[in-house]
């Protein structure tokens, strides 16, 4: 891994963080898309997408609802996908599922840690914005400029936190994953594979929780059964 790649991935993390917390929420910051972007940058789109899908399925239950304490999905997905993609590219290891499982685990851990960092640093940003108190005699033009200053401060803050998180976590995550995948034997490879294959169950649970309401149950159950029949036939 070159320093240039860390910088590029950190910049991507910064841009996606700004989109996630300050943009129009166009889903680009969601793991499934951010991991794909990382994969395309590193040249390993399919394994990176596998990491993104696994993370998305786990984090489906942590959509940014009001007051929700969610993990930092951007740093988690960027670091997780980059770890898998870079490991596969650099080591040439053929155990793709193990690499994807390791990247996913790393992504989940970074996401949790990143969530704590983002919540803590955001308190400072919030205090700065809450202290906005312009002079009473300020005209609209002056006020607009002052608000613009706060806007750029906040946008840069979100991007900087995201970029620093990725830049700090990626080398550590990569070194840890390299060591871990270098020492595991076949039983642990099988364990990691089982874990990765079981993760979608958490996504299925999140979906069930989201849509299982009295008037929606019939759609949920019917489509599950219909799709199962179609898959069975196909």
């Amino acid at each position: 891994m070159m320093a240039r790649e860390v910088v590029i991935l950190a910049l991507l993390g910064g841009l996606l963080s700004a989109d996630d917390r300050a943009g129009w929420g166009g889903m680009l910051a969601h793991p499934i898309y951010s991991a794909l972007l990382v994969g395309l940058l590193v040249g390993q789109p399919v394994p990176a997408l596998m990491v993104g899908t696994a993370l998305e399925l786990v984090w489906l239950s942590a959509l940014p609802m009001r007051g929700a304490r969610r993990p930092d999905v951007v740093s988690g997905a960027v670091v997780g996908a980059a770890t898998t993609a870079l490991l596969l590219r650099e080591t040439g290891d053929a155990r793709t599922l193990l690499m994807v499982a390791t990247g996913t685990a790393v992504g989940l851990a970074v996401g949790e840690a990143g969530g704590v960092v983002v919540r803590t640093t955001s308190r400072w940003r919030d205090a700065r914005l809450s202290a906005f108190d312009p002079p009473a005699d300020l005209d609209s033009r002056g006020l607009a400029w002052r608000i613009e200053g706060y806007f750029f401060f906040s946008l840069t803050f979100h991007a900087a936190v995201g970029a620093v998180l990725v830049a700090a976590a990626l080398p550590v995550a990569l070194a840890t994953a390299e060591r871990l995948t270098g020492v595991v034997g076949e039983p642990l490879v099988a364990g990691a594979r089982e874990w990765l294959l079981l993760l979608p169950a958490l996504g299925a649970a999140a979906l069930w929780q989201t849509f299982a309401h009295r008037h929606l149950n019939r759609f949920l159950v019917l489509s599950t059964m219909l799709m199962l029949i179609l898959l069975w036939i196909g």
Binding site: G203, T210, F211, F219, L220, S223, T224, L226, L231
Partner: peptide
């Protein structure tokens, strides 16, 4: 919500089928 539940059901089926 109905479309969401239907697509959600399809994903649950895909997950179960893969298991």
């Amino acid at each position: 919500q109905s479309i969401g539940a239907s697509v959600g059901g399809a994903l649950v089926a895909v997950v179960l089928f893969r298991f």
